[in-house]
């Protein structure tokens, strides 16, 4: 690790939201997915986890979400309150690689689900659900069923569902990987618009250099076998970012740096003699 300080944050005054130290994950089948991960996620940042497939970035995201326990190390939520069982109240939204909607339920019912599981009555939260649906640009589709929507629209529903409880952190696991380029760019822009100025944090798993540079304030480049942290790249470009940024020299420069880092990460896993 080329002198990287894993605990560096975007701006010094932003408090740490998640503190990951020495996290490793070994599955019972013997797969060594992660080793020695140190990472501090600052409140309000847009942090991408970038790496080749098999580098454990999705595994790390799932551990942060509480879907599974790390085999070693700890994941702390310094600012969260802990419940009686010692589990942090994480306040997260999760967007999977697939839209993961309930096909038998309408858009409204799908977005309402997290609130419904909390015991909230439909009438009392209807406006909140409608807001979330409108927020992702799907006003008027509340009564539609998932199969009536395009892939991009389904992903929007999935994002609305993740945001409906107004979480502090949005965890996204390669959410746009299966979408076409145009839809993907539009969703990138919409995601930035949703994120801008609301104070919530995004942790975004991707294998696209261009996507990570466009979106992130910081990029954590990971290497594989076992998954480890390689480098942290701060993308020091102001928000809001839009088409001009995508065409700018600094965007290109960051893409170059990030690509080089990613190539380094892949070089370490048997692509060199």
């Amino acid at each position: 690790m080329d002198g990287v300080d894993p605990n560096q944050v975007v701006n010094a005054d932003a408090p740490a939201l998640i503190r990951i130290s020495g996290v490793g994950k070994r599955y019972s089948g013997g797969t060594h997915a992660l080793q020695g991960i140190d990472l501090t996620v600052a409140q309000g940042e847009f942090l991408s986890l970038l790496g080749p497939s098999g580098c454990g970035k999705s595994t790390l995201l799932r551990l942060i979400a509480g879907l599974g326990e790390p085999s070693e190390g700890t994941i702390d939520w310094p600012r969260a309150s802990y419940d009686a069982g010692g589990k942090p109240e994480r306040s997260i939204g999760f967007v999977f690689q697939e839209p993961t909607l309930m096909p038998w339920a309408t858009v409204f019912e799908n977005v309402y689900l997290p609130l419904r599981l909390d015991g909230a009555r439909r009438q009392t939260v209807a406006a909140q659900v409608e807001d979330a649906i409108e927020g992702v640009g799907l006003a008027g589709f509340a009564k539609a069923y998932p199969r009536q929507l395009s892939g991009g629209m389904r992903m929007r529903v999935s994002i609305a569902r993740a945001l409906v409880k107004r979480p502090k952190v949005l965890l996204m696991d390669e959410p746009f990987a299966a979408l076409d380029e145009i839809t993907r760019m539009r969703l990138n822009d919409d995601l930035l618009r949703l994120w801008a100025g609301r104070g919530w944090t995004v942790l975004f798993v991707t294998h696209s250099v261009y996507e990570s540079v466009y979106l992130s304030s910081r990029i954590a480049v990971m290497g594989a076998r076992p998954g480890h942290m390689r480098e942290l790249i701060t993308v020091d470009a102001p928000y809001p970012r839009d088409e001009p940024f995508r065409l700018s020299a600094s965007y290109n420069e960051y893409c170059r740096i990030t690509s080089a880092s990613l190539r380094g990460a892949m070089g370490g896993v048997g692509h060199q003699p």
Partner: peptide, 21 residues
């Protein structure tokens, strides 16, 4: 769907909720 099951776990669904919904 496995992801849907994970989603229900994330939101702390009870057994009964998981069964019914």
């Amino acid at each position: 769907d496995h992801n849907l099951r994970d989603l229900f776990q994330l939101y702390g669904a009870s057994r009964w909720q998981r069964l019914r919904m």
